[in-house]
Design a protein around this nucleic acid. Structure first.
Length: 446
RNA sequence: GUGAUUGUAGCUCAGCUGGUUAGAGCGCCGGAUUGUGGUUCCGGAGGUCGCGGGUUCGAACCCCGUCAUUCACCCCA
């Protein structure tokens, strides 16, 4: 069998794939730029300690680490159990947010705040691949730092809605607030166990009410504590009713009430641009979120989330620049493309050359090349068949590479300083003078 | 890291309860056809049956291991 294959969780992109992906990227890019975000690119790998500890325990495990260069083994103290830092000091980026935070911390003095940037680059995770999950995939991020205003959240949600509307993909943006989850934990008396509480709660739609209860017990919560958390399992589907319920429940928690206020304010404004759902079970594993959190779900396809994001109040603090609040969203390019493909909703995208110039004989090759040059000068995508093969074979090749025209350039045409252009779809053939090539209508018969 | 699934020609797949020399379609190469493709016809090349071991007179088929794939869990885009 073919042992020639790309590494686990990676893919090659053939011409049609590349065009599809470019199309989606183009849509996202235009939305980003319309909202005044400027592009940024960062290196594919960072110093290991820049990335470690930012994504939670599970995240750290999934970071692709890069072996140190040179004879690093000689400086390992215990060869039986070398420390990770002795073997690796660099790692492939795991997302775009942390490298961005590193960049902001580094240039905090020079950046005009609030600073908004977008970034479209691959990231790598040492995960086991499955449907819609890869070890190399593209994230398309838009973040703004240096503003605590909730208007940023409003605009980011509007960008989600606009981008997915432009792509023709129906989605619902689920929103929640870390402060709300912290408030729940606080009133239930488990404020110090926020992660255990939320990770289990996040699975509500998958494992059901009983499943979450069971996991809470597994994670060491007492019956009393579980009972106190119970209302989190029964939020009503209605947005306003849920907010009112939370307002009553969390009245003794300052952070909880603040979160409810913020969610209400945001939903009133961001809910106008498209589907927005309040989902108090939404947790998101990334450790650094502190305020509103988002996750985008395609409603017509079974696929993991196609986007996610949220507010992080102190990400640059780790890099020595405290007090900068940021908020950002991410689009999962690969999953978006998968959704569009599955729904057959990718616009047809032209590829391949328009014209193949046939070669009759070695003696006529110079003229064929001359015509090919004319065509290219006229901006026409052109391929010159490289040898005088059988005409049938050259026509077949034209068909296969997606050319819509064949140019015949033999001694007869050369004598008339012209070229025979044959449309492969219609069979229609035109004799065109070389000097008229620039004005030829290549779309006729299309 | 856990569980399941699949692995036969370049691709998609047949291959019976284990039984000669492992098949088909598509694709590829050549010819019918040395200046006009798609159709048709003729001919041809191409397989360590993922890999290693075991059972058997005999294994693509049964058993064990291993690698790879896909899917699910975990987590996420």
């Amino acid at each position: 069998m073919s042992q020639a294959r790309p590494a686990k969780g990676t893919r090659d992109f053939a011409a049609a794939d590349v065009l599809r992906r470019r199309y989606v990227v183009g849509v996202l890019q235009s939305v980003f730029e319309r909202y005044g975000f400027a592009p940024l690119e960062t290196p594919s790998f960072e110093n290991l300690d820049t990335l470690m500890g930012k994504y939670g325990e599970e995240g750290d495990r999934l970071i692709f680490k890069i072996l140190r260069s040179g004879d690093f083994m000689k400086s390992v103290a215990d060869l039986q159990q070398p420390k990770a830092s002795e073997l690796a000091d660099k790692a492939l980026r795991y997302d775009l947010t942390v490298p961005f935070a590193r960049y902001v911390a580094q240039h905090a003095g020079q950046l005009a705040m609030p600073f908004r940037r977008y970034q479209i680059q691959p990231v790598w995770r040492a995960d086991n691949p499955q449907k819609g999950r890869f070890r190399e995939f593209y994230q398309c991020d838009a973040d703004v730092v240096g503003s605590r205003s909730l208007w940023q959240e409003v605009e980011l949600v509007a960008m989600y809605h606009q981008a997915f509307a432009a792509l023709g993909l129906h989605v619902v943006v689920r929103v929640n607030h870390r402060g709300l989850l912290a408030g729940i934990a606080e009133v239930a008396g488990i404020g110090d166990r926020l992660v255990d509480f939320t990770l289990a709660l996040d699975k509500l739609d998958k494992v059901g009410v009983d499943g979450v209860r069971a996991e809470w017990r597994e994670r060491g919560f007492t019956d009393v504590q579980c009972a106190a958390l119970e209302p989190a399992l029964h939020s009503s589907g209605d947005l306003q009713a849920t907010l009112a319920q939370m307002r009553r429940w969390l009245s003794t928690s300052e952070q909880g009430m603040k979160a409810v206020d913020e969610l209400q304010w945001l939903i009133e404004r961001a809910g106008r641009s498209g589907d927005l759902a309040l989902d108090i079970t939404l947790a998101r594993g990334l450790n650094y979120y502190t305020g509103c959190i988002f996750e985008v779900q395609a409603t017509e396809v079974a696929m993991g989330s196609v986007g996610g994001g949220g507010r992080y109040d102190n990400l640059t603090g780790i890099f020595g620049v405290p007090g900068l609040s940021g908020v950002g969203i991410s689009f999962g390019l690969d999953r978006i493309v998968l959704c569009l493909e599955e729904l057959n909703r990718v616009p047809s995208l032209a590829s391949g050359p328009q014209v193949l110039v046939v070669q009759f004989s070695n003696a006529e090759a110079d003229y064929a090349y001359l015509v090919a040059s004319d065509l290219r000068a006229a901006g026409v995508r052109t391929v010159l068949y490289p040898e005088p093969a059988k005409i049938k074979k050259q026509f077949d090749h034209a068909e296969r590479i997606g050319a819509s025209w064949v140019a015949l350039t033999g001694s007869m045409e050369q004598a008339a300083d012209s070229v025979q252009l044959k449309n492969l779809a219609t069979g229609a053939q035109h004799s065109v003078r070389r000097s008229d090539l620039a004005h030829f209508d290549w779309n006729q018969g299309a």
